[in-house]
Each structure stands twice: as C-alpha cells, then as structure tokens.
Design a protein around this nucleic acid. Structure first.
Lengths: 236, 236
DNA sequence: AAGTGGTCTAGACCACGGC
DNA sequence: CCGTGGTCTAGACCACTTC
C-alpha cells in the first residue's frame, strides 16, 4: 500500500486549493514561507520545499524580498500528466478512440528504449485523442508485457492508462525524458487526424520511468500542430 | 559587484568537473550526499541541494537506497542556455550570421509579451545559427531598447547575446517560459536555411526573464527539424 | 523597521538495496 | 547490517523591498 503523504505535498495541494477556492488571480500573493510553516506546523525548509515545487510547475512565482504570488496563467509547466488529467484540469471531458491494442514481439528499437532483452513481448496501444470532438493527436504506447499482465482487458478506450498503471498495478511514476521535433503528417496519420498529407506535426517521444528510474513505458505522440502547443519552462 | 557564489553552486560545478575530468561514464556513481557534505565541509541539506539541481538538469540520476549516478546522455535538460554555450559544451565552435539589427517601434504583439507600454522602442536582432557550416536555425530576438543602450554596437555577429546581457549590462537571467509548436518553412525561412518551402520547422517562442521576473527578451527560434531536436524532462 | 525569499547548519528518523 | 536517498526540525544570517 501507499506510505503516508509527505508534509510538503500536503502543503502543496493546500496552496493550490487556496488558489482555486479563493479564486486568486495572477499576481495575488499567497502565504509567505513563514506563514505556511506556522499554518501547517512544519519547519521553514519544509514549507520552502512545497513552494519550490509549485514554482517549478509554474503555479506560483517568487520575488525575492517581496513575496510569493500566483503565477500568470494556468499551464502546468514541466509536469508529467496524462491526457485524461490534462483535459479534466481544463474542465474538458477526455475522449479517446482505441485503434490498436495487442502484444507484439518484433520492434527492437523500442525494446532497447525500454531496456528490455531483445525479442521481449510488449503491449502496443494506439489511441486517437479528441478535444471537443476534433481529433488532435495520435498516441502510440509500448509497455513491457511481462510487467502488465491483463493490461489489454482494462477498457483503455475509456480508462486512463496512467490511472491503471498507478492504481491497479501499484507503480509510482517519477519522470519522463522527452525528445521533441517537427515532422509532416504521413498518409496514415493524416487520415486518422482528418488532416491533409504533409500537415505540420509536433512529435513527442517519451520514455516514462517508475520510481526506481526503470523505463516503464515508451510513448510516441503525434500532435496536430494547429491544435496543440507545448509549454515548457527552462531555468538558468 | 557580484556577491559570493553559494556553496551548493560550487559543489554543483565540482561534481560536473569530477565527471568530465575523470571521464566518468553513464551509470558510474558519483559521491553520495554524505560524502559530498564531508568533502566540502557543508551540511547534508546543502549537498542535497546541489545534487537536486544536477538531477533536474539531467546530469545525474538518483536511485533511492542505492546512490547517485552519472546520467545517460549528456543533454542538459530544462536548462536555459545560449546557442554559444550549447555549442561550446559540445566542443563545437559557434558560428552565426547577423541578418537584422535595428530599433523598431511598431510590433505591438511583442511589446505586450515584454510588458512594455504600447509603442515602446525595441531592439530587433535576427541571426542565422550554423552547426558545422550548415545553417540550422533562424533566431529573432526582441529587447526593450530603453534598457540596452548601445546594444547594437556590440558585434552581435560574433559575441554571445547572453554574455553581453549578463556581463556588460549586469543583468541576472532566471528562467524562460517557452511555447513549442511545429510549422512549415515559409519562403523567407526556406531561403535563409537552404530548405525547400514547406519543410518541417520546430518553432520555439521564449519569454526570458531576469532575476526579478521581469521579461527581458522575447525570442522566436525556427529550427530546421531534420537537424534539431529538443530534449526536455518532465516530473510527476 | 518589518517582512521577504535565499542560503545554511547540525543534527534526526525512515524504508529499502545490496552484501 | 551498513549505506543510501527522502523527509524533516528548529534554529540562523543575509540582502533587499515595501511601507
């Protein structure tokens, strides 16, 4: 079972709820480190930790000598989220269509990305993602078959893959390394996403890792560039 | 003048030098938190801080209960670097060509991105970036003219813009928020980058901020997708 | 002058991996 | 069993902003 939630996580969600519940606008200030520490009965370093995470996610903005403030708009930078989570955080209903769901044995390039022995069986899942009834992405996922027995029976047309992995298989995800580039839609992708051949596609290849840094899933996302932008934050 | 370098920064660069000097390979372990603390005469939290930053940059990988190790490749994830820094970190010579360098008054969309009053004067700088004599990117920068008097006289064909901003104007950069999408090369870009019209282009629009979170520079980068990939890391 | 975030200390306990 | 990273404490000083 899961261990107890760390204090800094509780504070983190508490601050986020404070923002949404009180309807704080960008620029409004949130409690200072010292206030949070007192409020939650923790030490200063712990309160700081919570704010540091929120800053990296783009929820909050810190100004030295001045305070901590609600950040500009609402994109969660650099945060690994599922399509389902992303949609519901924007108040939209997720909607997908399962195109492929089978076990494969012969894609050795991806086997290598997942650090598996050559010839290993993998589950391959292809889904089309919709935003308000318009298809905007084709996502192809690969997972080691040995670690996810019965995965294909989980109604992946309607269930969140992240949810199944984390809750039904008890795996904690930690981070993803991603390669981003641009391509043109080939015939198949164009047909699936209702585009013309050659339309610009934003391609994102992720290696998602579990808590012990083992690769757990390889995902190729092909996003219709007109309907999707990626937001990131980089620090100096 | 500049203040003293924080201890965690010193440890950070010390670890990086250790890796390059000893030629450590991915998977080799670096000193543990406790070792680093003893080595540099700092407390455990400070040594941890250094490793946390290195982990976010993708230099180092931590495995709970096991240790800290040199990370897989050597791309510096999520780190705001200049073209010049990126090239020299790969042992390549930077090479650019200045296309445009002038003061403009009439691009109000960008004026808004920089939080300036409407009609403000901005410096506009366009440069082509080369990788081993092949053009691979067109970068267009906008800066508030009032804050950078004499910027255009700084030999921007050869000098690093980041260097000039940080050292000659004494500004500390903190982070950049970026929008990434895919497009097709228009006629001008195609000509400048020796591509055919319609080739896939990875476009990155950055708002770079100084230490007090004021926008300092707006950059539109258009990268030839065949010759450039973006690496990022996202955390759960 | 009061308050803020940034840095730092010198300890502590925990859960787990590898020996 | 020992060493590891992850979490946490209860303080401290600094440089600076805002009032």
């Amino acid at each position: 079972m899961s261990t107890t939630v760390p204090a800094y996580r509780r504070i983190q969600t508490a601050v986020q709820q404070l923002i949404t519940r009180k309807g704080l606008k960008p620029g409004d200030n949130v409690p200072s480190e010292r206030e949070l520490a007192k409020l939650h009965g923790v030490s200063l370093m712990t309160a700081r930790h919570a704010l540091t995470v929120l800053e990296h996610e783009g929820v909050v903005e810190r100004r030295r000598y001045a305070g901590t403030f609600v950040a500009q708009p609402r994109i969660h930078f650099n945060k690994l989220t599922s399509y389902t989570e992303e949609m519901s955080s924007r108040g939209l209903a997720p909607h997908s269509r399962l195109i492929t769901g089978k076990v494969i044995y012969n894609e050795d390039e991806i086997v290598a990305q997942l650090n598996l022995p050559p010839g290993s069986a993998m589950v391959k899942i292809e889904r089309i993602r919709y935003a308000s009834d318009e298809p905007f992405a084709l996502e192809t996922c690969y997972l080691p078959n040995a670690e996810f027995p019965g995965l294909l029976a989980k109604h992946l047309g309607t269930n969140s893959l992240f949810f199944v992995i984390e809750n039904e298989f008890g795996i904690t995800l930690s981070y993803a390394d991603e390669e981003v580039d641009a391509t043109a839609a080939d015939e198949r992708v164009a047909a699936l996403l209702s585009l013309s051949c050659g339309s610009p596609i934003l391609r994102i290849c992720q290696v998602i890792r579990s808590s012990n840094n083992r690769p757990i899933m390889y995902v190729i996302g092909q996003y219709c560039a007109q309907r999707h932008t990626l937001f990131i934050r980089r620090f100096r």
